[in-house]
Amino acid sequence: MNQDKVILDVQHLKKYFELGRGRVLKAVDDVSFQIHEGETLGLVGESGCGKTTCGRTALGMYKKTDGTVLYNGKDVHALKGAELFAYKKEAQMIFQDPYASLDPRMTVSDIVAEGLDVHNMTHSKKERAERIYDLLNMVGLNKEHANRFIHEFSGGQRQRIGIARALAMEPKFMVLDEPISALDVSIQAQVVNMLIRLQRDMGLTYLFIAHDLSMVKHISDRVGVMYLGNMVEITSSAELYSHPLHPYTQALLSAIPIPDPVIEAEREATRIRLEGEVPSPIDTPPGCKFAGRCKYCTERCRKESPQLKDMGNGHQVACFAVE
């Protein structure tokens, strides 16, 4: 596996939603990042920050407003015909809600094999059945589950079925959109450990979208932090958690409780408390989106929007205060 090879190159990606009456929701506003082969890029942020839209647009599920997304050098949004068909096989998505993303009227084997059938990946009934059993096995389910319907499964099992469906396509790149946030703590660890194992065994590349920073730190090699449609900081996971530079990242990390009362008591004094809430993403004022809640905010922040700047070692941050 080549860690230096860029598998997905997103440059100045924009996705605006027209709301009518001239109002525009800038869900993703000029976001750039790269994902290298075999790595996991985490995308974090609070609800409404555009992380899901960013993932979906990068995958080509939404039409972009502007910018480019190159997958292995090819523009994802310009793919057609056979190339698009092949791309859809290589890039897969796992959804957040395992209750809504699986068809309740299909059996597990039909769900898992839907892609197999579309792409003619198996040549006989026997081969198809064996492939289904293999896939179920891979995600920790067994043969007996194949002929059941979705309502017979728990949340964790459903998420596994969703993952088996994606794996059936032998993907190279997967977008995981909050794959564990609907699950219980003890089940989350099961699914995350499985995702890490699958990545190692199959050489997958992940874009891992989540709001749970502790879990993102655990699974990701690099992490990007989004706020109101902008990427505010992107760096290696270790670096982000030890030296967060952007004021928003610092506040976000500080707000996450650590399951240890002694450490919590120590942190209490230095905790950064964010006032207010995330403002509406509709018709945002110019300048840095975080300016209204930032304690380092200056006149300049309200006028110009900061661009991502490399602070050395691939640690990029968009803030005037740290320049």
């Binding site: 703590v185 089940i187 660890a189 099961q190």
Partner: peptide, 17 residues
């Protein structure tokens, strides 16, 4: 089973089967 933000090394999450 819960990952912790304050630990530097990668943890192995013990899942409850």
């Amino acid at each position: 089973a819960v990952p912790r933000l304050d630990l530097v090394n990668k943890q192995v999450l013990t899942s409850i089967e």
